[in-house]
Design a protein around this nucleic acid. Structure first.
Lengths: 332, 332
DNA sequence: GTCCTCACTGCATGCGTTTGCAAAACAGTG
DNA sequence: CACTGTTTTGCAAACGCATGCAGTGAGGAC
């Protein structure tokens, strides 16, 4: 019996011969309703096709059951994976994800966040976007829990879920060194990102421990074309590195393309390549990219737990960085 | 002056010495307000950090400014691209995207759609999900414009934006034939999808026009592992095809992996491979996949136009399928 | 100066819910 | 049956905003 137009709790109430409150209670888990009226209401609701209006409920309770996600890159396959995981995990908790694309320019993030807050989101996750500290203040002032995903702020206070990027960089260094490589280069991501800085710091640490220094360095800004340019600059020369750590898998694919298709070098014989993230396509034979794996599931899980706790009123503090691991494939 | 907690239009009104209506009107484009009060209000709002509550406005006006998107696959890079485009385009119109993951099982789509409708979305786009016709009815009954993306329903009536998949299949066939290939196979996607059926129909049409038939056929269901299995079945034999049209790029990558890495065949010498979609990674040299390009921008643009029109009250009818084109690279 | 017009403004109502409070129903006890 | 304790239920008041309607004032025409 599909009814056109809005059917409200009042309609259901009338049909079931009860009050609006009664029908509201039937749809509120844990409210006091007799089985008999519950039955009547459910029946009427079914017949009319009634479902509570989430927005109206949101107004009253202040809980919208929506989580804002702002994300900058979707071309880097790591983030679609995260989105899929995150959305699924939140759905399990009764929440849904409102997506906001942050243009790559960093300064309109303020606008974006404002827009999100207009929707009265119950939580906010900022994936791979830099959050200025006054913006962080604004969020906190609005009382919305925010978690930084894959980025952390130097100033403590914001909840951030990150992998142990430093350890990742170190693992990469150690692996390359164990392979006998000595001229090790680094193609960096955007230098404003903590993620980048930590990965590079770990790399340097590992090199230093073996008495080595960085052989070459270029910046790829986490963007594919820039990464390819960086690779050209770094490798189209006589004195080239025999190994390179690229700041993420996505850029690493571009680097490998340049190496093999443009410069005729072979990986790993001429140059060993290590990426970071372990996106699904890193396992594809065409690249078979050795990489430092970030555990996306664990990261998402930490994110969701934090959100749920904070929404529940529990103050929560950033956990230790999540463990990473070296995935050995054929590129190094 | 960051104020903690909610600041409502009443707060602003008080501070500006006007009524709530006035501040409401200031934030409603096209309402009648004198420049002087507008100024006062804007100032007060600024000072208090006031922004209208979208949800409250939604209740009153019935327009939530949110569009629901249900999407099944995010591992196929075509859809992240679409999401990014769609979100950006809708943001330009003042809308935002609420994402719902449809598990791959087809039957819980009903639940998902119900949940979406609970949020009073202004529109609904179903990307790559099959919509049963009674579900379509429910959507229409709720008065929410829905557009099917990259799928169409045999029964007219739903707005669907699709490429000219049939033509695409035909172009692929013609190209392979022009290349002198005669033993042409097809690795199909999920057979319940109109997209699949149309692509295959086009392929058959093209073959028939050249007096050929399909040399081999397997089903890959739009999933990577299935596609690889399909490739193994099709090619691990003496009598193998010398060309194959794979129903989308994502599967084509898997097929190429099997061909080259597992079976030691070379592409295109031993087997020519054509994909469908032209996802960004199809251009990567490691695959250099010849493919039939779907114009994602045009598809998104058509989607947004349709939504905006329908929301504006204009009944709108499905356009012709959008043009596709053959992108020649090295895999065929 | 009077009257009319018109641009503004405030009041009050309503959007579809939830929820504290108090009345009502019910069950149990002596 | 009277009385108490426990559910269950309805009333009414929010939540934050938009908007029709009536009213205020200013400006123009005569």
């Amino acid at each position: 019996m599909t009814t056109i137009g809005k059917v409200t709790s009042l309609d259901v109430a009338k049909r079931a011969g009860v009050s609006r409150s009664a029908v509201s209670r039937v749809f509120t888990p844990g409210a006091s309703v007799s089985p008999r009226t519950a039955e009547k209401v459910r029946e009427a609701a079914e017949a009319l096709g009634y479902r509570p209006n989430v927005l109206a409920r949101a107004m009253l309770t202040g809980k919208s059951k929506i989580i804002g996600l702002v994300v900058a890159y979707l071309d880097n396959h790591f983030y679609p994976t995260v989105l899929e995981l995150l959305s699924a995990a939140l759905e399990r908790e009764g929440y849904h994800v409102l997506v906001f694309m942050a243009s790559h320019t960093a300064d309109d993030i303020g606008d974006v966040v404002s827009q999100i807050l207009d929707y009265q989101v119950d939580g906010l996750v900022l994936a791979s976007v830099a959050l200025s500290s006054d913006l962080a203040d604004r969020c906190r002032a609005s009382g919305v829990p925010v978690v930084l995903f894959n980025r952390k702020l130097e100033t403590e206070g914001e909840f951030a879920v990150v992998s142990d990027n430093r350890m990742g960089g170190r693992l990469a260094a150690e692996h390359l060194i164990a392979l006998g490589r000595t001229r090790i280069g680094h193609i960096a991501g955007w230098e404003g990102a903590s993620t980048q800085r930590d990965r590079e710091a770990g790399l340097m640490e590992g090199l230093r421990a073996a008495g080595l220094g960085l052989f070459a360095r270029e910046v790829g800004d986490f963007r594919l074309p820039r990464a390819k340019d960086a690779a050209r600059r770094m490798f189209d020369t006589d004195q080239r590195p025999d190994a390179v750590l690229v700041a993420n898998d996505y850029m690493a694919f571009g680097v490998m393309d340049v190496l093999r298709a443009e410069l005729g070098l072979s990986v790993p014989e001429d140059v060993a390549v290590i990426g970071f993230d372990d996106v699904p396509s890193a396992a594809w034979p065409a690249y078979s990219l050795t990489t430092i794996k970030q555990d996306a599931e664990a990261m998402v899980s930490a994110t969701v737990n934090a959100l749920m706790s904070e929404i529940g009123g529990t103050e929560v503090v950033s956990p230790d960085p999540l463990p990473v691991s070296l995935i050995r494939r054929h590129s190094a």
